[in-house]
Design a protein around this nucleic acid. Structure first.
Lengths: 224, 224
DNA sequence: TACGTATTTTGACAGTGTCAAGAATGGGTC
DNA sequence: GACCCATTCTTGACACTGTCAAAATACGTA
């Protein structure tokens, strides 16, 4: 006679379980892949109900484990959020290398436009990740995970070294300061994204021309 | 024999009381200027201990009133934060009109640099306000106060109409789209500020050259 | 002095993150 | 197969949080 028959019965039919896929043995005391299930469900909650609505207790309840089970995989809530942000950086890098076609595409007015569009699209469509990646909550007071810090530094370093290599190949003006340009242009992209996400640029029809304008401005800076 | 002798004694010597100034009658049941005291103390807590550390209960305790007294002036915590953001917009507008010398200063490479510096300085030094003004928490899910929304719209409209009037006076290139330029440049300013605030541009020595670069980029867009 | 209104308090409820201690499980060794 | 132990999960508990409803207090005014 089990001590939690209802919960177990619920678990086998829970929609949550179907997403975790591989190694989850339904009906067992051990979940099988709790760590991944936690991250997935957390992302789902943030996307569909907002970050504020994510609590460790509700998260565990939805998955079908007890409130503190998660603490075996994440030291605290912050660590969970860091793990999600890391996943975000992985997706972000994938998006970047697709837009840049792995560096095989020379910079141009068009490539700039595609890049700006891609960035803003990623930020505004995958808000669940973007908010955590550059949201501040994670970074303030230095409570972020080591691996997350490494991942994010990598991301920006790639960005700069991209510009630098363009300059060395003579594809852009040699007057450009690669580091400064990267910082300022990234700021612009980040600013556009944040203002859209936060609903301050409410008119969604304005997004496209804003991106175009930004891309033109960037290219005016870079053009040989 | 009073029912809360300790609290009353504390109140008269509390450092909090001394800041409220004018109409507070110390030692009385009625606080005198509780609304203002709440805002001031809330700002203090956010600045010195971080926004996360601000709770309605602690706030009331610090001031020396009971936990729910604040709800007579603010419908909920969100409303309190909106009030602080409004105060922030007032300070922001003051800063702007000082930098622009009330519109009497024609746009130039120097004025651009001063403007960028002023903006970033305001954002990074008065983080308590800036975070709330453009922080998202307040805007998401449309729970912001009417008066706050009005104040913020005003702020941006002023910014655009400034650029527009420059254009009409022939002080900048007539190829500039005032609205688009305003949106993109504001995004850049916001992006720089956020990335500094969030500690992602950790090197504080980089701030100055970043601002300079941004200002140059802006002026290249505007120069007649 | 009495009354109504503005202001503040107490009590209560449903949440939250997280620690410490214990219980169930599964894999490896004899 | 029986045993043991590390891994995984649960229960209980504590100190917090925002906020509602009802009661208490003080003040201005008639």
């Amino acid at each position: 006679m089990s001590r939690w028959p209802d919960r177990l019965r619920d678990m086998t039919t829970s929609s949550t379980r179907s997403t975790s896929g591989s190694s989850s043995r339904s009906g067992s005391y051990h979940h099988g892949d709790l760590r991944q299930a936690l991250v997935s469900e957390a992302v789902r909650i943030i996307r569909e109900e907002g970050e504020k609505s994510l609590s460790m207790r509700k998260l565990a309840l939805n998955i079908g484990v007890s409130r503190t089970a998660s603490y075996h995989y994440f030291a605290d809530k912050q660590a969970l959020l860091c793990a999600i942000a890391e996943e975000g950086f992985r997706r972000y890098n994938a998006m970047l290398s697709e837009v840049h076609q792995n560096g095989r595409r020379p910079p141009s007015a068009e490539s700039m436009r595609d890049f700006v569009r891609g960035y803003v699209q990623f930020a505004t469509e995958q808000t669940e990740y973007y908010d955590l990646m550059f949201g501040g909550h994670i970074w303030e007071s230095g409570t972020s995970t080591d691996s997350l810090r490494k991942e994010s530094h990598n991301s920006f370093r790639n960005y700069v070294s991209n510009v630098r290599s363009w300059k060395e190949q003579g594809l852009i003006s040699d007057k450009v300061d690669a580091l400064r340009f990267s910082q300022v242009s990234w700021s612009t992209l980040h600013g556009i994204s944040r203002l859209i996400i936060d609903g301050i640029y409410a008119d969604s029809a304005a997004i496209e021309p804003i991106c175009e304008n930004a891309a033109e401005m960037f290219w005016r800076e870079l053009a040989p």
